[in-house]
Design a protein around this nucleic acid. Structure first.
Lengths: 218, 218
DNA sequence: TGCATTGTTGCACGTTATGCAAGTTTGCGC
DNA sequence: GCGCAAACTTGCATAACGTGCAACAATGCA
């Protein structure tokens, strides 16, 4: 089921292909019929796999709709781990990486946005995922704090707490801007690269918003 | 089903009694058998109601375990709405109110803590609930910001964004301290009022933590 | 080509969750 | 007290989610 080692062979390609087919079927059906009205059976049928196979690829309907890929997320985490510089900035990058690997990517960014726009509960789902990763993520952030002069004097336990808070703060900020991003309306549906603000830009704006608020609060 | 008007009559008392019975049965069973192993059927049986009646009181197993009372939450929100003073402090109070009304109260605070301790996923559930209330909550916070000189100059839309961020920040902080609270071990099981830090104190500490982090970040 | 690994599928089963209709309990005006 | 209306409980039917299992098919590799 998992652990398709990096052979790059037919097997692996087929697997990615099937995952994509299921994802597309799920997102498409949800856009057509709504989230509730879309059953896993219907998704499986459109993706031309059995009901049972669906669960070999995604643990739930929501994950299929978002196209979540746990392996990609894990790989992303390893990649970003040894960031340096400002912890807040690095934390934003970390969250961005998780989201990227969680389906925001693909050729289907527009599709994903449309789905999130029509079904905000899926955004909550995204957030829950990050919450589930909290222990791993905050450990990474805590590591960064150890290299920061402002936090280096704290005990390890304190740094972990502070890391959790910082993670939560950044996450909250991201969530707000994601919501704005999702609620954007497409400019012209025809234009190929009409590009209604890409996610990355949204993140940059989120950081600015947070800095503004922090400035005002203190 | 709902809207038992405030007669204070037998009907209302019985209803509260049944809700409590289901809640206690749920929490008890979860502690004995675990969250997965506890079925709604088992809860219903112990609470001496039909499976169907269970759903007249709680929409899900999790809500029953936590003893969530939507009406109480709504009432709490109305009560806290016209707070004044520092927005951050008020926001903490707001979140606290939601939690209080969501089951943290009762004679069963110790029970609730034990359950949350053994099943952290329920904490996530609590957070999702607040997220679901986000629109209402952030509207309240945005109202407060209008009275604050630091934010009064902003447009309404900006204030709403900032309110969401502030809410998220406070919520993240609360979550961290709730986790610490839940993971406390009981001092002496025998002592009646051994009182291992009440939730309110935890909140106060959370505020301090947040202020510290904000101080360091800026 | 042949064997081990991995993937697919159907089937059975248990659980969550909701609608509906019949029956019961409570509240309240008379 | 009586009786009606509203609220509540319950069983039944139904749909969907989710998982274990075992048989079968496809793939990778020697």
């Amino acid at each position: 089921m998992q652990e398709t080692y990096g052979t790059g062979g037919l097997r692996e390609r087929k697997r990615a292909q099937t995952a994509d087919a299921i994802h597309l079927a799920a997102a498409g059906l949800v856009l057509e019929r709504g989230l509730e009205a879309t059953t896993i059976d219907a998704i499986s049928e459109r993706a031309d796999v059995s009901n049972r196979t669906f669960f070999n690829y995604f643990p739930s309907k929501e994950d299929a709709v978002l196209g979540i890929d746990e392996q990609a997320v894990a790989a992303e985490l390893d990649r970003v781990r040894d960031s340096t510089g400002d912890p807040v900035r690095a934390t934003f990058d970390l969250i961005y990486a998780v989201f990227e690997a969680s389906g925001g990517r693909h050729k289907n960014a527009a599709l994903t946005r449309e789905v999130l726009q029509k079904h905000p509960s899926l955004m909550t789902r995204q957030m829950v995922r990050v919450a589930e990763l909290e222990d791993r993520l905050s450990a990474i952030v805590a590591g960064w704090l150890g290299d920061d002069p402002r936090f280096a004097g704290d005990t390890e336990s304190q740094r972990l707490d502070e890391a959790r808070v910082i993670l939560g703060i950044c996450l909250a900020t991201v969530r707000v801007s994601m919501k704005k991003w999702a609620s954007q309306t497409d400019g012209d549906p025809g234009g190929a690269a009409s590009a209604p603000t890409d996610p990355r830009t949204t993140y940059e704006r989120a950081i600015t918003t947070l800095r503004t608020v922090l400035e005002k609060l203190r």
